[in-house]
Amino acid sequence: MKKRTLLLTGVAAAAIATGAFADGHAPLKVGFVYVGPVGDGGWTYEHDQGRLAVEAHFGDKVETVFQENVPEGADAERAMTQMALQGADLIFTTSFGYMDPTIAVAAKFPDVKFEHATGYKRADNVSTYSARFYEGRAIQGHIAGKMTKTNKIGYIASFPIPEVIRGINSAYLHAKKVNPDVEFSVVWAYTWFDPAKEADAAKALIENGADVILQHTDSTAPQAAAAEAGGVITFGQASDMGEYAPLPRVSSIIDNWAPYYIQRVQAVMDGTWESVDTWDGIGPGMVGIGEITDAVPADVKAEAEAMRDAIAAGEYHPFTGPINKQDGSVWLADGEIASDGDLAGMSFYVEGMTGEIPN
């Protein structure tokens, strides 16, 4: 009989402590720490789909626990510590702000394996993993640049970290390439998940004339705001958000964590787990492009799908020069492709973007 998923509660702790498992052998205990609710419809939802895929794949060989809505900072360190004390063998920490807490807790539990999403600090028992979301942003930017009627595109950003800045730049470059008159307005929400703030940001951008809204926040609130306004298109973030298709949501970036989670759990079981850094995109399947709806003109849809396929095949890189920085200085020469190191530390806007990146 397959063990049901356990929330990180006193009941779960008791079950783990007693070792009462179906086949008499303690399964591998795998923990997940989430920054939002599992029902956010975006980032955390997709990580939890990955957790469920682990359960489905391994059955009684695994026991998963999770804690949702864990703020970045001291609360995250407490949640990770609790999981380790309860016997977790492998813990996935799924938000950038969990980076330092993950490193701190890992040092206290050297026999526990940790996997941190979107960060860059590693240790002997800490791996890092992320997806090349900027590849999907390039496709969204192309569609946005072709479909905007006002030439104003709004972008709801979470925090000014390289991951988010890369996405803004990628979307802008590809919108500008097909529509030289396009303008980007960025609203920094300083949150990953806050439906009220996200809705307010979307409404402000729409009132300012934006008829395309992109987001790097996790709720469907911007989709709802755009649907209410009418005449605005949006893109699903982290998850398909297909309930808003065919309008306002015309496509999406879908994070597919399941294969990675299954692979890393298997590595622990096999005794082959090592600290590695993984950064995969459309080609390996970690980044999916949700259905491009018929609300997108057929020629634009075909162009977007061709770009998707070229990126997947390694024939096109979204950051290929010539590209200048915002101040006009040369970043990439004609035909030059950005290195992963430059992308991982990106802290500047590209030429043509207005406004400043907050500290």
Results as ranks from 00 to 15, higher is better:
residue 239 S to E: 07
residue 239 S to H: 12
residue 240 D to Q: 06
residue 240 D to N: 06
residue 241 M to P: 06
residue 242 G to Y: 03
residue 242 G to F: 02
residue 243 E to M: 14
residue 243 E to S: 15
residue 244 Y to Q: 03
residue 244 Y to D: 00
residue 244 Y to K: 01
residue 244 Y to T: 04
residue 244 Y to F: 15
residue 244 Y to V: 03
residue 244 Y to C: 02
residue 245 A to Q: 15
residue 245 A to M: 15
residue 245 A to Y: 08
residue 246 P to S: 13
residue 246 P to W: 08
residue 246 P to A: 13
residue 248 P to Y: 01
residue 248 P to H: 10
residue 248 P to K: 09
residue 248 P to Q: 07
residue 248 P to A: 12
residue 248 P to M: 08
residue 248 P to E: 10
residue 249 R to M: 09
residue 249 R to S: 12
residue 250 V to Q: 03
residue 251 S to K: 12
residue 251 S to C: 14
residue 251 S to W: 14
residue 251 S to N: 13
residue 251 S to L: 06
residue 253 I to N: 03
residue 254 I to P: 00
residue 254 I to L: 00
residue 254 I to S: 00
residue 255 D to F: 08
residue 255 D to K: 06
residue 256 N to T: 09
residue 256 N to E: 11
residue 256 N to P: 05
residue 257 W to R: 01
residue 257 W to E: 04
residue 257 W to S: 00
residue 258 A to V: 08
residue 258 A to N: 05
residue 258 A to G: 08
residue 259 P to Y: 05
residue 259 P to S: 01
residue 259 P to F: 05
residue 259 P to G: 01
residue 259 P to E: 00
residue 260 Y to R: 12
residue 260 Y to E: 05
residue 261 Y to C: 03
residue 261 Y to L: 11
residue 261 Y to T: 08
residue 262 I to K: 09
residue 262 I to Y: 07
residue 262 I to G: 02
residue 263 Q to K: 15
residue 263 Q to L: 10
residue 263 Q to G: 03
residue 263 Q to D: 07
residue 263 Q to W: 09
residue 264 R to N: 03
residue 265 V to A: 08
residue 265 V to E: 04
residue 265 V to R: 03
residue 266 Q to N: 04
residue 267 A to V: 08
residue 267 A to L: 09
residue 267 A to R: 11
residue 267 A to W: 09
residue 268 V to Y: 07
residue 268 V to H: 08
residue 268 V to M: 07
residue 269 M to G: 12
residue 269 M to I: 07
residue 270 D to H: 14
residue 270 D to Q: 13
residue 271 G to I: 04
residue 271 G to M: 04
residue 271 G to C: 14
residue 271 G to S: 13
residue 271 G to F: 14
residue 272 T to H: 02
residue 272 T to D: 02
residue 272 T to R: 10
residue 273 W to K: 10
residue 273 W to L: 11
residue 274 E to I: 13
residue 274 E to Q: 15
residue 275 S to R: 14
residue 276 V to D: 02
residue 276 V to T: 06
residue 276 V to E: 10
residue 277 D to T: 15
residue 277 D to W: 15
residue 277 D to P: 07
residue 277 D to V: 14
residue 279 W to F: 15
residue 279 W to Q: 08
residue 280 D to S: 08
residue 280 D to M: 14
residue 281 G to D: 00
residue 281 G to F: 10
residue 281 G to C: 01
residue 281 G to V: 07
residue 281 G to S: 03
residue 282 I to S: 06
residue 282 I to Q: 06
residue 282 I to N: 05
residue 282 I to D: 01
residue 283 G to P: 05
residue 283 G to C: 12
residue 283 G to F: 11
residue 283 G to T: 12
residue 284 P to A: 12
residue 284 P to C: 04
residue 285 G to M: 06
residue 286 M to T: 10
residue 286 M to I: 12
residue 286 M to A: 10
residue 287 V to T: 06
residue 287 V to Y: 01
residue 287 V to H: 02
residue 287 V to P: 01
residue 287 V to W: 03
residue 288 G to T: 01
residue 288 G to L: 04
residue 289 I to R: 00
residue 289 I to N: 00
residue 289 I to P: 00
residue 289 I to V: 12
residue 289 I to G: 00
residue 289 I to H: 00
residue 291 E to Y: 10
residue 291 E to A: 05
residue 292 I to M: 06
residue 292 I to V: 14
residue 292 I to A: 05
residue 292 I to Y: 09
residue 293 T to C: 10
residue 293 T to F: 03
residue 293 T to V: 09
residue 293 T to W: 07
residue 293 T to L: 08
residue 293 T to M: 09
residue 293 T to P: 11
residue 293 T to N: 10
residue 293 T to Q: 06
residue 295 A to I: 14
residue 295 A to K: 14
residue 295 A to G: 14
